[in-house]
């Protein structure tokens, strides 16, 4: 167990390092103009620009810069934002925005699990009948229609219908509801479709017939055997999904003006805010890797056939 965990942590560290180094170097290939805000660029003369760039440290060779990044990291200092939130410490920026994404994300995830798993169970239980058909229609709509369309629909029409605010207000809980639901819609579809599928797979297995032949009522077979086994392949994804809620949703946060993490990485990249990009990439890759690792550990707990020594578990969904 100990050896396995160490080995996996070592692998995770390597993965994260490669991701961060790659992004770090790619950023250094960008044109230097990108480090200026428009006004700054216009207002500075040639020398002032050079001094500014030297001050930022982007004129040194990339490996020196990377060394500086690492030593900062060791001290818990990820630098200051350059262009997106000029001169604010990156950690403060993240610390301020992350809670919004996290809370919305966790609420939406809880909603997706509750409704999605419930819908999946209904679809499997009433396969080829009305609940299954209705569920399939829902899943198809959510997946086939571009999310922008139904997200706008919810924002425009549902808020009008209910008389609710169209944007997020921190002090008005009613304004939190629609963003959470919007955020959960695709998760509900995901859970429903995969749970249905895994349950139907399990239902057709021989051990279910044997359980029935032992005289167990169908409901008990569904609960104690089919549902239980069908949840196993999904369990693997729980930790990842929980951890990555912190990344937020670009679309929903911008529609409802939620000051979360959603658009942060995109604007940081577009505005060449190196320290911010680096910090976010580091954060997301660590969370991603840790999530996968925890998922694998969880699989060992729920599936007695999987041993720790084996490499990552087998799963399905994506």
């Amino acid at each position: 167990m100990g050896a396995y965990v160490l080995k996996r942590l070592g692998q995770s560290l390597i993965t994260v390092s490669i991701v961060v180094l790659t992004v770090f170097l790619l950023l250094r290939l960008m044109p230097k103009n990108g480090y200026f805000t428009r006004e700054d660029y216009v207002n500075m003369d040639r020398d002032a620009r050079t001094a500014y760039l030297r001050n930022l440290g982007v004129l040194d060779d990339p490996f020196t810069q990377f060394g500086r990044f690492l030593s900062g990291l060791a001290r818990g200092d990820l630098g200051r934002s350059i262009t997106v939130y000029p001169r604010s410490p990156v950690l403060d920026v993240i610390g301020e925005k992350a809670p919004y994404s996290l809370w919305f994300g966790l609420a939406a995830l809880a909603l997706s699990m509750a409704l999605g798993l419930g819908l999946g169970i209904l679809m499997a239980r009433f396969k080829d009948r009305f609940p299954d058909g209705a569920g399939t229609v829902y899943v198809t709509i959510v997946r086939a229609i571009p999310s922008l369309i139904w997200l706008f629909f919810i924002q425009q029409w549902v808020t009008a219908l209910l008389g609710w605010p169209m944007v997020f207000y921190e002090d008005r809980p009613v304004s939190w509801v629609l963003p959470t639901i919007s955020l959960a819609l695709s998760g509900i579809a995901w859970y429903a479709i995969w749970l249905r599928r895994f349950m139907v797979d399990e239902e057709n297995k021989d051990y279910v017939k044997f359980a029935v032949s032992k005289g167990l009522p169908w409901k008990r077979v569904m609960r104690g055997h089919v549902l239980r086994n069908a949840l196993v392949p999904l369990v693997q994804y729980f930790p990842q999904q929980i951890l990555l809620t912190i990344a937020g949703s670009l679309l929903i946060e911008s529609i409802y003006s939620i000051p979360g993490m959603g658009g942060l990485l995109v604007s940081a990249i577009r505005q060449q805010d190196n320290p911010l990009v680096q910090a976010l990439v580091l954060l997301y890759s660590v969370l991603g890797v840790v999530g996968v690792f925890l998922g694998d550990l969880l699989m060992v707990l729920v599936d007695p056939r999987i041993k720790l020594a084996e490499s990552s578990g087998k799963g399905a969904a994506a």
Partner: peptide, 13 residues
């Protein structure tokens, strides 16, 4: 009792 004992038991119980 069924033909194939390899599949007649629930692998997770």
């Amino acid at each position: 009792i069924f033909q194939d004992p390899m599949t007649a038991l629930n692998p997770l119980k």
